[in-house]
């Protein structure tokens, strides 16, 4: 691999842009196709399909065998609420290579002391989410219990292509949340995107256990197509 191609792949990754490296396995020839250039590529249809699946693989075309190294951005998790569960969740996420960002306007909660080594924004979701790209590689987790903070974040997530949206709270809390979101114009299909009560049902009790159940649900959603029983 030429160093400039390797460098290009790494630059696209750092910028959260998908890219595909195409290797002709017989000749060793390679080229890098950035997401924005796919539509001008002779292999456009095939590249789009590989990108949609987010998986690397072999492609036979006109007597050539190509290997496509498909690189998609790292998964980012926006955690709304600098609460006790978040303190357990952030380090767990780092352990499985998910990028975490924590948002909470309550400055007593959103402190670097409570969240070492994590990006913490002491801002209202309304103020910071519009500047953030909530793409299909992003998950949103609302953990404050406070509609003033959670609802605007959930609304932004529902208007985006986030692959996972979860909200903490009992069934009753979620019923009231659903009514508010419907009143704001969201549909049943929108509401169905929200995982609530949040997390896989593992009987979690402590904040750390709840964090594990949330993390497991995010991974289960991300890897849906690989699960034995969906």
């Amino acid at each position: 691999m030429r160093l400039d191609l390797l460098s290009g792949l790494n630059a696209e990754q750092a910028a959260r842009r998908p890219a595909i490296l195409i290797t002709d396995l017989a000749s060793g020839e390679q080229r890098l196709v950035r997401a924005k250039d796919i539509r001008n590529d002779p292999l456009e249809d095939e590249l789009q399909e590989y990108l949609r699946l987010g998986k690397s693989g072999l492609l036979e075309k006109e007597g050539h065998q190509f290997f496509l190294t498909v690189q998609v951005p790292p998964v980012k998790v926006v955690i709304v609420g600098a609460v006790h569960i978040s303190q357990a969740l952030a380090p767990l996420m780092r352990g499985v290579d998910l990028d975490a960002i924590i948002i909470d306007p309550r400055t007593a909660f959103a402190t670097p002391e409570r969240f070492p080594d994590v990006t913490v924004l002491a801002e209202w979701p309304d103020a910071v989410l519009p500047g953030m790209s909530l793409d299909r590689y992003t998950a949103m987790v609302a953990l404050t219990h406070d509609p003033k903070i959670d609802d605007p974040a959930l609304s932004a997530a529902l208007r985006s292509s986030c692959f996972y949206i979860g909200a903490l709270g009992s069934r009753k809390t979620h019923e009231r949340r659903t009514q508010r979101l419907m009143a704001a114009g969201f549909t049943d299909a929108d509401i169905a995107r929200i995982h609530a009560p949040i997390g896989l049902d593992i009987g979690a009790v402590s904040p750390a256990e709840i964090a594990v159940s949330i993390l497991a649900e995010i991974i289960a959603t991300l890897r849906r197509d690989r699960r034995r029983a969906a």
């Binding site: 691999m1 160093l3 390797l6 460098s7 792949l9 790494n10 990754q13 290997f67 690189q71 499985v96």
Partner: peptide, 27 residues
């Protein structure tokens, strides 16, 4: 931990440091 992205970043860093580097990929 090392994701595939970290691994390729390391490959670039090693090469830029003047080392001989190879990348093995499951195809």
């Amino acid at each position: 931990l090392s994701t595939d992205a970290d691994i390729l970043k390391t490959a670039e860093a090693w090469r830029r440091a003047g080392k001989g580097v190879a990348i093995a990929t499951v195809v």
